[in-house]
């Protein structure tokens, strides 16, 4: 395994981590706002607040970790993506900022402000949309080199069906992941009302997820044949992922084994995400930038990997502690301990 592959694997794992925990977070914000709108807030709010409170800051760090790591391992991405992503990434930052700060403001400042909750919920849906633009751009066709500088074709990007399919997919995935997670969490909390409501949402969002995911594979055939062919080579990975998806829906439908359903969901997204990533190899930005052109010097790569291993030695026990104290602590989850600041 070359250093390049180690680098991109590390980053891809962190991006996947962000995908899962941010989805739970974004989706929870949306469901919270939606329940407020439909007058069901009393059912969901407690469960959602209890989960989100200790982890909201950690969620953000996963994203920071990913983009700092990307610049570290692949400094050339700064040149290509930095220049082209100014507008979409800035919008994502602003939304993230509104979201992160309003969460703290609302929780500690003025509990129950409706305007905050709606902004919070909506921002959560726009963030995956604005971030998923990066995936679309990486497929190529939207960035051209003019006078040696990369320039993004906004019109082409916004009129392309692929863009919108990826946007819809990201939003559907966020809501689906979040709904399944919260079904499990509410069930653990012994909150049957919240469980059945979240179960309903999980089943509703499974459908658009399936349709857009299939649609994107078809659209890629026209847009980026090379990538499409490589995806076909890995059909079995996508196949297992689809089976896991069916498994999750089955258990949620049957109202049993929510824990297993959640594990299958994580497996499903992990396989699809890694199969997508592997089939994208070796391009970081098709066809301008490959893994190998963009890679940093070997000295830095080794230094980064050592720092990464040392850092993980610190992080994994700490994350485990966090999970044990909150996510896997029965009394906390059931709200028997309100250990508020």
């Amino acid at each position: 395994m070359t250093l390049e592959i180690v680098g991109i694997s590390v980053l891809w794992i962190f991006l996947f981590g962000y995908l899962i925990i941010a989805s739970v977070d974004f989706g929870a914000g949306f469901f919270n706002a939606y329940s407020l709108l439909t007058g069901r807030q009393h059912i969901l709010t407690n469960v959602i607040q209890r989960y989100l409170s200790p982890v909201w800051e950690v969620t953000n760090v996963f994203l920071v970790f990913f983009f700092v790591g990307t610049i570290g391992f692949f400094p050339k991405t700064a040149f290509f993506y930095g220049t082209t992503l100014l507008v979409p990434a800035s919008i994502a930052i602003i939304l993230l900022a509104i979201r992160g700060s309003y969460y703290a403001f609302e929780t500690y400042g003025s509990r129950g402000h409706k305007g905050y909750s709606f902004m919070y919920g909506l921002a959560g849906l726009f963030i995956p949309a604005s971030l998923s633009i990066v995936l679309t751009i990486s497929e190529g066709g939207f960035v051209s080199m003019i006078d040696g500088q990369p320039v993004l074709d906004y019109w082409g990007l916004f009129t392309n069906p692929l863009t919108w399919s990826i946007v819809v997919l990201s939003v559907a995935a966020v809501l689906y992941i979040s709904a399944v997670f919260l079904t499990w969490y509410a069930d653990k909390a012994g909150d049957s009302k919240a469980t059945s409501l979240m179960r309903k949402y999980a089943l509703i969002w499974a459908l658009p997820l399936m349709i857009t995911a299939t649609g994107i594979i078809v659209e890629l055939r026209d847009h980026n044949v090379e990538h499409y062919n490589r995806m076909i080579d890995f059909w079995w990975l996508f196949g297992i992922s689809a089976l896991m998806f069916i498994g999750t829906v089955w258990f949620v439908w049957k109202r049993e084994k929510y824990g297993l359903a959640l594990s299958l969901l994580i497996g499903q997204f992990a396989l699809a995400f890694f199969a997508y990533g592997i089939s994208h190899y070796p391009y970081l930005l098709y066809p301008h930038l490959t893994l190998y052109d963009g890679f940093t010097n070997p000295t830095m790569a080794i230094a980064l990997i050592i720092a990464f291993i040392a850092g993980l030695g610190l992080l994994i026990p700490s994350l485990y502690l966090l999970l044990r104290l909150f996510l896997f602590n029965k009394d906390y989850v059931r709200g028997k301990r309100d250990n508020h600041v």
Binding site: S53, P54, V55, E57, V58, N60, V61, V64, F65, V68, G69, I71, G72, F73, P75, T296, M300, A303, L304, A307, F308, G311, L314, L315, S318, L319, L321, L322, L325, F326, N339, H340, V341
Partner: peptide, 23 residues
């Protein structure tokens, strides 16, 4: 890139324990 990367670890570490401390 090295100190930049290490900074995110420090930030991560702080974020986890701040969450625990506060609750």
């Amino acid at each position: 890139a090295l100190p930049l990367f290490m900074e995110t670890f420090a930030f991560f570490f702080e974020a986890i324990f701040l969450g625990i401390y506060l609750y």
